[in-house]
Protein backbone atom coordinates (compact mmCIF):
# COMPACT_ATOMS: atom_id res chain seq x y z
CA UNK A 1 0.00 0.00 0.00
CA UNK A 2 1.20 3.50 -0.86
CA UNK A 3 1.63 6.04 1.92
CA UNK A 4 -0.76 8.49 0.26
CA UNK A 5 -3.59 5.96 0.51
CA UNK A 6 -3.40 6.15 4.29
CA UNK A 7 -3.94 9.91 4.50
CA UNK A 8 -7.48 11.24 4.35
CA UNK A 9 -8.13 14.99 3.82
CA UNK A 10 -9.85 15.29 7.22
CA UNK A 11 -6.61 14.20 8.88
CA UNK A 12 -4.48 16.77 7.07
CA UNK A 13 -4.41 20.13 8.83
CA UNK A 14 -2.28 22.76 7.14
CA UNK A 15 -2.98 25.40 9.74
CA UNK A 16 -2.76 23.98 13.24
CA UNK A 17 -4.16 26.25 15.93
CA UNK A 18 -1.81 24.67 18.49
CA UNK A 19 0.82 26.85 20.11
CA UNK A 20 2.58 24.06 22.00
CA UNK A 21 3.71 20.50 21.37
CA UNK A 22 0.99 19.12 23.66
CA UNK A 23 -1.70 21.12 21.93
CA UNK A 24 -0.45 19.93 18.55
CA UNK A 25 -0.61 16.29 19.66
CA UNK A 26 -4.16 16.80 20.94
CA UNK A 27 -5.21 18.58 17.76
CA UNK A 28 -3.85 15.83 15.54
CA UNK A 29 -5.36 13.08 17.69
CA UNK A 30 -8.71 14.83 17.34
CA UNK A 31 -8.43 14.50 13.54
CA UNK A 32 -8.74 10.73 13.84
CA UNK A 33 -12.41 10.70 14.76
CA UNK A 34 -12.11 8.66 17.96
CA UNK A 35 -14.36 9.03 20.98
CA UNK A 36 -13.23 11.37 23.76
CA UNK A 37 -12.00 8.66 26.10
CA UNK A 38 -9.95 6.98 23.38
CA UNK A 39 -8.48 10.35 22.39
CA UNK A 40 -7.36 10.87 26.00
CA UNK A 41 -5.72 7.45 26.21
CA UNK A 42 -3.98 7.93 22.89
CA UNK A 43 -2.71 11.37 23.83
CA UNK A 44 -1.31 9.95 27.06
CA UNK A 45 0.53 7.22 25.16
CA UNK A 46 1.98 9.71 22.69
CA UNK A 47 3.16 11.84 25.61
CA UNK A 48 4.78 8.82 27.22
CA UNK A 49 6.59 8.10 23.96
CA UNK A 50 7.77 11.72 23.78
CA UNK A 51 9.08 11.37 27.33
CA UNK A 52 11.46 8.66 26.10
CA UNK A 53 12.93 11.15 23.63
CA UNK A 54 11.51 13.74 21.28
CA UNK A 55 10.17 12.52 17.96
CA UNK A 56 11.38 15.76 16.39
CA UNK A 57 13.91 14.39 13.87
CA UNK A 58 15.22 17.78 12.80
CA UNK A 59 14.68 20.11 9.82
CA UNK A 60 11.31 21.13 11.22
CA UNK A 61 9.81 17.63 11.15
CA UNK A 62 8.38 15.51 13.98
CA UNK A 63 6.87 12.04 13.80
CA UNK A 64 5.01 11.25 17.03
CA UNK A 65 4.06 7.58 17.00
CA UNK A 66 2.82 4.75 19.17
CA UNK A 67 0.77 1.62 19.24
CA UNK A 68 -2.47 1.60 21.14
CA UNK A 69 -5.47 -0.62 21.65
CA UNK A 70 -7.79 2.31 21.03
CA UNK A 71 -7.36 2.07 17.26
CA UNK A 72 -8.34 -0.89 15.11
CA UNK A 73 -6.15 -0.06 12.13
CA UNK A 74 -3.14 2.06 11.24
CA UNK A 75 -4.05 5.73 11.37
CA UNK A 76 -2.01 8.71 10.21
CA UNK A 77 -2.44 12.46 10.31
CA UNK A 78 -0.41 15.46 9.20
CA UNK A 79 -0.32 18.90 10.76
CA UNK A 80 1.53 22.06 9.81
CA UNK A 81 2.35 25.07 11.95
CA UNK A 82 4.41 27.47 9.92
CA UNK A 83 5.35 29.65 12.87
CA UNK A 84 6.86 26.57 14.51
CA UNK A 85 6.42 24.61 17.73
CA UNK A 86 8.92 23.86 20.44
CA UNK A 87 9.19 20.09 20.17
CA UNK A 88 12.61 19.67 21.82
CA UNK A 89 13.73 18.32 18.46
CA UNK A 90 17.13 16.72 17.87
CA UNK A 91 18.45 19.87 16.18
CA UNK A 92 16.69 22.06 18.77
CA UNK A 93 14.93 23.93 15.99
CA UNK A 94 11.17 24.57 15.93
CA UNK A 95 8.97 21.91 14.38
CA UNK A 96 6.66 22.99 11.58
CA UNK A 97 5.49 19.66 10.19
CA UNK A 98 4.05 16.90 12.34
CA UNK A 99 3.26 13.40 11.09
CA UNK A 100 1.22 11.36 13.54
CA UNK A 101 1.25 7.57 13.26
CA UNK A 102 -0.82 5.27 15.44
CA UNK A 103 -1.23 1.54 15.06
CA UNK A 104 -3.06 -1.19 16.93
CA UNK A 105 -0.96 -3.81 18.74
CA UNK A 106 -2.24 -6.47 16.38
CA UNK A 107 -1.83 -5.57 12.77
CA UNK A 108 -2.47 -8.16 10.09
CA UNK A 109 -0.76 -6.15 7.37
CA UNK A 110 2.12 -5.12 9.64
CA UNK A 111 2.39 -1.64 8.14
CA UNK A 112 3.41 0.33 11.22
CA UNK A 113 7.19 0.01 11.01
CA UNK A 114 7.41 0.36 7.20
CA UNK A 115 5.19 3.47 7.34
CA UNK A 116 7.25 4.97 10.16
CA UNK A 117 10.42 4.25 8.18
CA UNK A 118 9.01 5.70 4.95
CA UNK A 119 7.90 8.93 6.63
CA UNK A 120 11.28 9.28 8.35
CA UNK A 121 12.98 8.80 4.98
CA UNK A 122 10.61 11.29 3.33
CA UNK A 123 11.39 13.82 6.05
CA UNK A 124 15.10 13.55 5.33
CA UNK A 125 14.79 14.46 1.65
CA UNK A 126 16.34 17.86 1.04
CA UNK A 127 13.39 19.49 -0.73
CA UNK A 128 10.64 18.18 1.54
CA UNK A 129 10.45 20.95 4.17
CA UNK A 130 10.17 23.60 1.48
CA UNK A 131 7.57 21.57 -0.44
CA UNK A 132 5.51 21.12 2.73
CA UNK A 133 5.70 24.85 3.42
CA UNK A 134 4.23 25.65 0.00
CA UNK A 135 1.17 23.40 0.24
CA UNK A 136 -2.14 25.18 0.07
CA UNK A 137 -4.57 22.26 0.31
CA UNK A 138 -4.74 18.70 1.67
CA UNK A 139 -5.01 17.49 -1.92
CA UNK A 140 -1.62 19.04 -2.67
CA UNK A 141 -0.17 17.12 0.25
CA UNK A 142 -1.41 13.88 -1.32
CA UNK A 143 -0.01 15.00 -4.68
CA UNK A 144 3.38 15.63 -3.07
CA UNK A 145 3.44 12.08 -1.75
CA UNK A 146 2.43 10.85 -5.18
CA UNK A 147 5.23 12.82 -6.79
CA UNK A 148 7.64 11.09 -4.43
CA UNK A 149 6.08 7.76 -5.39
CA UNK A 150 4.99 7.22 -1.80
Amino acid sequence: MQLRELFVPSAINLDLAAETKDEALKELVSCLGLDGKSEGILYKMLKRRENLGSTGIGRGIAIPHCRSLVVTRLRVAFGRKLSGLDFKAIDEKPVRYVFLIVAPPLEVSNQYLPVLGKIAQFGKEADVPESLAELSSPEQFIELLEAKDL
Binding site: I41, M45, R48, R49, C66, R67, S68, L69, P105
Partner: peptide, 20 residues
Protein backbone atom coordinates in the same frame (compact mmCIF):
# COMPACT_ATOMS: atom_id res chain seq x y z
CA UNK B 1 -14.79 3.63 30.95
CA UNK B 2 -13.81 1.77 34.07
CA UNK B 3 -10.71 3.41 35.56
CA UNK B 4 -9.04 0.08 36.28
CA UNK B 5 -9.60 -0.93 32.66
CA UNK B 6 -8.06 2.35 31.56
CA UNK B 7 -5.01 1.58 33.69
CA UNK B 8 -4.79 -1.90 32.18
CA UNK B 9 -4.90 -0.38 28.70
CA UNK B 10 -2.07 1.96 29.53
CA UNK B 11 -0.01 -0.85 30.99
CA UNK B 12 -0.66 -2.98 27.92
CA UNK B 13 0.39 -0.21 25.54
CA UNK B 14 3.56 0.48 27.55
CA UNK B 15 4.44 -3.23 27.63
CA UNK B 16 3.99 -3.32 23.87
CA UNK B 17 6.27 -0.31 23.49
CA UNK B 18 8.87 -2.00 25.67
CA UNK B 19 8.68 -5.26 23.75
CA UNK B 20 9.23 -3.48 20.44
Amino acid sequence: MDQQLELLLEIQDLRMQRRE
